[in-house]
Design a protein around this nucleic acid. Structure first.
Length: 185
DNA sequence: TAGGCCATCTGGTCCT
DNA sequence: AGGACCAGATGGCCTA
């Protein structure tokens, strides 16, 4: 897909904080309408959505109160932006420690998470394999790691009836995934 | 042009 | 009460 990282984009100028989402694009139906609305109302998300769909624009109070609420919204937007920037920095830090083949191709977020998960699994499997190889004088943290990973996971497998890949399977899966990402699938 | 990915805005809810 | 978190909505950019 993407072959190179893009420069940071600047979004369109901020919307009027008093405008409801439905007002932004008249060509899309307001959220919460349609056959799924009744079911969705039960969830927390849907309740929020429903409130928005009502289009109930709060009557702004006197000028100063309106201004302060606009100000609060802008501050809140800024905090949210900062929060997302921190999240993106964390994603970037994660990308930098995951080995992948195409250094010029920026991993997407979902690719980063998926590769990281399988990378951790493969490293864990490697450690477990090595530590079961009767290394002399090995009584440090590795046997503890063995216990930590083997016991709960076996218990969980038993409980869920799930079939987990053998240790070498993780490495295989990770390597396969790297190559599939390289090929852009 | 469609689809994927992303940044940003937004309002509800949770947490301190 | 105020900030953090969350997820839906929206629109821009890019590639196939």
């Amino acid at each position: 897909m993407k072959t190179k990282s893009r420069p940071p984009r600047r979004r369109a100028p901020p919307q009027d904080p008093e405008a409801t989402p439905g007002e932004r694009t008249p060509d899309r139906p307001p959220p919460g309408s349609g056959p799924d609305a009744a079911k969705a109302l039960r969830s927390r998300r849907a309740r929020a959505q429903g409130a928005r769909a009502e289009g109930g624009r709060r009557r702004p109070g006197p000028g100063s109160r309106r201004e302060s609420s606009v100000q609060r919204r802008l501050e809140s937007n800024e905090r949210e932006r900062q929060r997302m920037h921190k999240l993106n920095n964390a994603f970037q830090a994660l990308r930098e420690v995951i080995p992948h083949v195409r250094a010029d191709k920026k991993l997407s977020k979902i690719e980063t998470l998926t590769l990281a998960k399988n990378y951790i699994k493969s490293l864990t499997a490697t450690i477990l394999t090595m530590s079961s190889g009767r290394l002399p004088g090995l009584d440090g943290p590795v046997p503890k790691l063995c216990q930590h990973y083997q016991q709960p996971q076996q218990a969980a497998r038993g409980a869920l009836g799930a079939s987990e890949a053998p240790p070498e399977g993780h490495l295989q899966k990770f390597s396969t995934q790297i190559h599939s990402f390289r090929e852009g699938s």
